[in-house]
Design a protein around this nucleic acid. Structure first.
Ligand SMILES: [Zn+2]
Ligand SMILES: [Zn+2]
Ligand SMILES: [Zn+2]
Ligand SMILES: [Zn+2]
Lengths: 125, 125
DNA sequence: CAGAAAATGAAAATGATTGTCAAAACGGTT
DNA sequence: AACCGTTTTGACAATCATTTTCATTTTCTG
């Protein structure tokens, strides 16, 4: 894996929003690339396995990816309008999740936390 | 809407775990019901619209539903092994989400928060 | 360069979810 | 009970994202 993976990674780096496979495919093809959709799926999978991109599911179940600046654990604040995404963290939330899990006798706790809203730009026009 | 919707709702009431449409379909058919899969999807959608069932997406994008005891805002602690789910709430998380959104100029803040782990029973054998 | 191993892409297969449409179940009315 | 307009239902087809398959191309190694 290399050629295509890097190309896909680069597309993600240049976007502040989460992007879908189809979305990336369309952009790359528009830019003249001959890449196949399958390769994009494979690249996204590999990048995610390597922890280089984050993935989340839209309301309708579509997987969308983003190359976040930090590889450390964090969460996202996503604009419902334009997709603009900001990386955020919440130490309190981390503690809360562990505690609520432990209180109920659960182990190996993990969690998903995403915040959505309308960004300043979208709030206007 | 009535006959089938109530039947689906009842199945969910009797389960502590989130269930998929296929899952519910299989159980109802096994119980002798002649219900169709389409009807189950419609019932789940209606129940969700009415706020009577919660929905979330599994890692592979499948929608799963649960009839929670409370209709008030809450979150879930889900066992990765058996699906056992406990309803939990975290006032701190609510506050944190609002604050982090506001800090970045976002409005109309919403959030998704789910906690996963291995329950006591599954931790054994 | 040769040959093996990894990557790629087109097309088919999968699986969840939705749309279509005619038949069946309801509800209220004579 | 027979009638009629409305709602619900279910079999089946259609969508859509994602995965598989498989033959071809590219990359790597010696
Ligand atoms: Zn925006
Ligand atoms: Zn966290
Ligand atoms: Zn369990
Ligand atoms: Zn909350």
């Amino acid at each position: 894996m290399s050629r295509s993976r890097d190309a896909v990674h680069e597309i993600l780096r240049q976007s502040a929003a989460f992007r879908s496979a189809q979305d990336i495919f369309t952009e790359m093809r528009a830019d003249g690339s001959k890449i196949g959709l399958t390769t994009i799926y494979r690249a996204l999978q590999a990048l995610n396995d390597d922890g280089r991109v984050d993935v989340l599911r839209t309301d309708d179940g579509e997987a969308v990816y983003r190359a976040c600046a930090t590889s450390a654990h964090h969460h996202h604040l996503v604009c419902r309008g334009c997709g603009l995404t900001v990386e955020v963290d919440g130490p309190d939330v981390e503690v809360w999740a562990e505690r609520v899990g432990a209180e109920h006798g659960f182990t190996a706790i993990t969690h998903t936390v995403e915040v959505f809203g309308t960004c300043g730009a979208c709030a206007k026009g």
